[in-house]
């Protein structure tokens, strides 16, 4: 045989895979490239320029929407992570008790319900609440973002807790630590990477949301994604590409940090 027979090789598979990777990145690469186009077209290359980044920077609507997005994502991520951490502590490392499966299912429920249905439900509910309370601020968006971020934050925290050695807290209790002190000096420092990972995941998920925000927001409460969705109906200039590029970079940075945080820690015993 001239060519060695590899049992793992299946004809055409590698070609399709490489094509998939290419197709996965081609649109994003094009999008980013045309953000630097000096012309007004998103298809005709006319030379390198940063003018669209400048235009976006000077566009008050973009800046306002970005600030609003960051505000909502920060509050929602922190709120979701606190809730998720407490819930993870309550649902791991114990013999199954009545209601534990229910809690687990309920926390993950937002992942199963179609987003459009949740969006409609929140629209109905909050439009009533807005009338009753007279309050129509960003609180509704923060609350609803926090709610669908909980399952995402819960995931890495729970995973971290389950990989943690229960005997460490036993050792702390054995060495005269009260339950609170054991949490403060042992559990929390060890759980910290998981909490940070959950926080980042929640932040990215909140930042990306379009559908729920579109339905829950009051007038003048556009976030960056809903602002972009509105703009897509009009003639698109490379300004949109510039905004998208910055957005992509931020997401990429957060995801990279998340990737390193959520890698399983090295075995601690030698």
């Amino acid at each position: 045989m001239a060519k060695s027979f590899s049992i793992k090789r299946l004809p055409g598979f590698s070609t399709i895979a490489m094509m998939t990777f290419f197709v996965l990145y081609l649109p994003i690469a094009t999008l980013v490239a045309y953000a630097f186009n000096s012309g007004v077209s998103v298809a005709m290359w006319e030379g390198f320029s940063l003018r669209w980044f400048e235009a976006a920077w000077n566009n008050d609507l973009v800046i306002e929407a970005s600030v609003r997005s960051l505000k909502i994502a920060s509050v929602a991520a922190v709120l979701a992570t606190i809730c998720a951490t407490l819930a993870a502590l309550a649902t791991t490392r114990t013999a199954a008790y009545r209601g534990m499966t229910f809690k687990y299912a309920f926390i993950n429920l937002p992942l199963l319900v179609p987003e459009i249905v949740t969006a409609v439900a929140l629209l109905i509910f909050f439009s009533r609440v807005k009338v009753w309370t007279g309050y129509s601020g960003l609180g509704y968006l923060m609350m609803s973002h926090a709610a669908f971020c909980v399952p995402f934050a819960y995931l890495p925290i729970r995973a971290r807790l389950e990989s943690m050695d229960l005997s460490l807290e036993r050792a702390a209790a054995d060495l005269y630590a009260t339950p609170f002190k054991a949490f403060r000096y042992v559990t929390l420092p060890l759980l910290w990477p998981g909490i940070l990972a959950g926080l980042m995941l929640a932040f990215v998920i909140s930042l990306d949301d379009v559908v729920i925000t579109e339905f829950v927001k009051s007038g003048g409460q556009d976030t960056l994604p809903t602002y972009m969705l509105g703009q897509l109906r009009r003639v698109v200039t490379p300004e949109m590409n510039a905004i998208s590029t910055v957005f992509l970079l931020i997401s990429l940075a957060i995801v990279t940090v998340f990737f390193f945080l959520s890698r399983t820690p090295e075995k601690d015993n030698g």
């Binding site: 502590l89 937002p110 319900v113 249905v117 949740t118 439900a121 509910f125």
Partner: peptide, 30 residues
Amino acid sequence: DIRDRWLLSAPALLLILVAGVGPLLIVVLY
């Protein structure tokens, strides 16, 4: 311990109930 565990999970459950899946019941009603 079990009571504490319910207290700990209460914020998450409440948040999801109010701003997540609870309003779905209102959709059914509507």
